[in-house]
Write a protein that binds this DNA or RNA. Structure first.
Lengths: 121, 121
DNA sequence: CCTCAGAATGAGAACTATTCTCATTTTTAG
DNA sequence: CTAAAAATGAGAATAGTTCTCATTCTGAGG
């Protein structure tokens, strides 16, 4: 694990939310101004492969990265754009039972208006 | 509805599958070589807005367009890349019940190996 | 403490899918 | 038939990400 990889991992682990590569890059630069965007992308890929972080893909948005690698789902607030974690039962099993297919995986993202945004509706 | 819109709609409706903008563009050009890619994109947007076709968004892939606007889910074959339709129960209701949230919508795409690809496993 | 092969890096070019711009053409309503 | 509105073609622009490649770092074996 190189210095840069540790830095990136640390940035992700000390932030309570889901960050884009760009955001991670900005925070890394505050600590180590020499780091390049390519290195951030490269290492996000490596860290994801190694299972140390998770990639959160949402249609029409840049990729986000999640420090939590435990299985869970995501909800996106349509107003403020924040991503939140939610847990549901065994979705894969449910989908397999519903479709009658043997699935490799699935992508799911739900959309709502988060509680804070609902206050100012 | 302009000539081009009819052409695009026709191309989508006479193809049994999920096409990308590029594929739709190619087929349109065979019939009307003058049509431009911008027109295809523009009209795919309009036709989708009007509910005449549906957009199928899959992470890491260009958008696909679906002639069927009835609610259904999609499975992507990891081998051949083909997209198939599947129907499941009321997924939104299920997700709302599971999460306890009031959802606006959700995106779901499942991954598997399709029957044809399994034969040559 | 050296050394050198392999890995990682920085900078920017390249790429893909899509949207935008704007001058021109087509369509539509009256 | 005409004027206003809508649609079009061509190509530039954009966003997010990956790729290239010359340079730098690292660490295992001497």
């Amino acid at each position: 694990m190189t210095k840069h990889q540790e830095l990136i991992l640390n940035v992700i682990r000390t932030f309570s939310g889901h960050m884009t590569a760009e955001e991670i890059y900005r925070r890394c630069k505050e600590i180590n101004p020499g780091i390049s965007l390519a290195t951030v992308y490269r290492n996000l890929g490596l860290l994801t492969e190694r299972g140390l972080i998770a990639k959160v893909s949402i249609n029409g948005q840049p990729e986000h990265y999640d420090r939590s690698v435990m299985k869970h789902e995501h909800v996106l607030c349509e107003r403020c754009g924040k991503i939140a974690d939610v847990s549901v039962g065994d979705m894969k099993a449910y989908l397999e039972q519903q479709t009658g297919l043997q699935l490799l995986s699935y992508d799911l993202c739900m959309r709502y208006v988060c509680p804070e945004c609902q206050q100012f509706a």
